[in-house]
Amino acid sequence: MELKELIVEKLKKNFGESVEEVTDFRDDLSITVSTNKIVDVAKFLKEDDDLLFVMCKDVTAIDWAKRKKRFTVVYHVYSFKNNYTLRIKTNIDENPPKLDSVSSIWLSANWYERETYDMYGIIFTNHPDLRRTYMPEGFQYHPLRKDFPVLGIPGSLPLPEKI
């Protein structure tokens, strides 16, 4: 596949050591980059004339529970020019779970990062409006973390009185 090689080559040329890992599983190319370079990589992918990944389809995170770098933040970006969906990953520590927001580059990342913050408690710095999306304000936990039980914590969400 020519396009995949081109993407990897271009990223390696511009970011060198920051490209940590490249995997290709079931024809999905995913590239792991350093956390501190994520905004630069995003900017490059969007603006490079050969790549033009202009649409961010999805931002989410994975909680690995026992790994040293507990969370992996995953971005799916799409290029109309090449008709290709690329996956970018970055591993972050648990304390503190913090990385820069890419919502200044891809507008659509705004809500996805809010969702990720709500579900995993990952803080996106420079995000314009980092609030919870789904859970009510004042809820203390982050449901998609592996240490949160499926049935929730009793009493953490208020219910109206019984009539």
Binding site: M135, V150, L151, G152, I153, L157, L159, E161, K162, I163
Partner: peptide, 15 residues
């Protein structure tokens, strides 16, 4: 929906 955010039956707060 046996999950954290779903009320397990509205009879908990409505007749």
């Amino acid at each position: 929906y046996r999950s954290y955010n779903v009320v397990q039956g509205i009879d908990q707060f409505l007749p």
